[in-house]
Design a protein around this nucleic acid. Sequence first.
DNA 1: GGTTCTCTCCGTCTGTAGACGGAGAAAAAT
DNA 2: ATTTTTCTCCGTCTACAGACGGAGAGAACC
Lengths: 215, 215
Amino acid sequence: MTKIRLVVVDDHELVRKGILSFLLTEPDIEVVGEGKSGAEAIQLAKKHTPDVVLMDLLMENGNGIEATKVIVDTGLNSRVVILTSYYDEKEVIPALEAGAFSFLLKTSSAAEVVTAIRKAAKGESVIEPKVTNVMVKRLRHHEKKLHDTLTEREMDVLQCISEGMTNAEISEDLFIGIKTVKTHVSNILSKLSVADRTQAAVYANRNSISKPKKD
Amino acid sequence: MTKIRLVVVDDHELVRKGILSFLLTEPDIEVVGEGKSGAEAIQLAKKHTPDVVLMDLLMENGNGIEATKVIVDTGLNSRVVILTSYYDEKEVIPALEAGAFSFLLKTSSAAEVVTAIRKAAKGESVIEPKVTNVMVKRLRHHEKKLHDTLTEREMDVLQCISEGMTNAEISEDLFIGIKTVKTHVSNILSKLSVADRTQAAVYANRNSISKPKKD
DNA sequence: GGTTCTCTCCGTCTGTAGACGGAGAAAAAT
DNA sequence: ATTTTTCTCCGTCTACAGACGGAGAGAACC
């Protein structure tokens, strides 16, 4: 029986070494590469075509989601197992959409991680209960996010509102009339089911809708 | 020469084991306890009176900041070294205020961590460059946060504003007259140097001022 | 006792916000 | 070729927001 070929990617040396020290005692798993960024993950995956890539999501240089997407899309038969610190909704869903095969939290025991690696090699997915909760919640509550129905222009206006701008300021910023701004605002309030611009601003902030800085 | 007595606290087993595997090769450091929550950290510190406590900040049960405060305040001669994943402004300052002795990020190499432990035992503080940057920025930009000048009642009102509530709703919620709410709002806007409630709501959200849920 | 701070409330007044209804032009979808 | 969507603009009207000034009561501080 051939060993499971594994690449470990995490920008925290401590975590990487911790994982490695565990895997040393597992005879059926061989670590063929070790990286500390999304870019390195991609290189290592292409070079070694491992069975499994164990990847952190939040890394300093190039995040794990992009790397996951690339690794999955390039058709290497590598399965990406995400091992991350927090179950942040903003990260979990995109990671799974990017093609992550399993999803673990660092609160998992070492044994669970090892099991997940073996299962991934066999084609079985392992998703943390906390993560599935987030998924279910998303499917139940916000199958489509409210602001997905906003038009481009309405998004522009909402971004301005989220900065605390007045209608007059928005009209100057977007080079349109105040009346037009008011129309957009009314439509936004209606689509987001909120009563006034303040609530719209709160919504925008909570959903990480912010104005991109112009150069 | 006596060994440095150390307690390691982190809710991630993987991280804990990673640290331990490193420290095994350091003959002058002895790990006398291992915990996975703030509460355990306090217990272990009281039981073993270690020279150094290596502590994560973000933990599932009871956070590291509270534990740090208790350990420092109880006058055990234990120095707390924070080892955390992210340099979040919201965490760094309170941790240092709580009496953390050193501050490291998990991106640090194992050697740096070991050095920091030895230095802490000798009474030397080690603060990550990224963290000092945050501190400097804080001292330069917001020596005192704007909302520190708000009175209790004004904070109550600001929290309501940050939820998108209208003056009428706030007056019902706080059992005061609308006119009184308006007075508070005006004072808040003035103190925060913002033009309207929407900007106040944005400020509140950015500074993590949110309304506590009532039971 | 006096001063200062905080919380409470009042009235007036101006400006903005937002609802409602209507409408034209361009682009995209059918 | 026709319909639908999107962006733009207009006018009217009501209600809320917020500025400004004033004021009384209680607590805390000196």
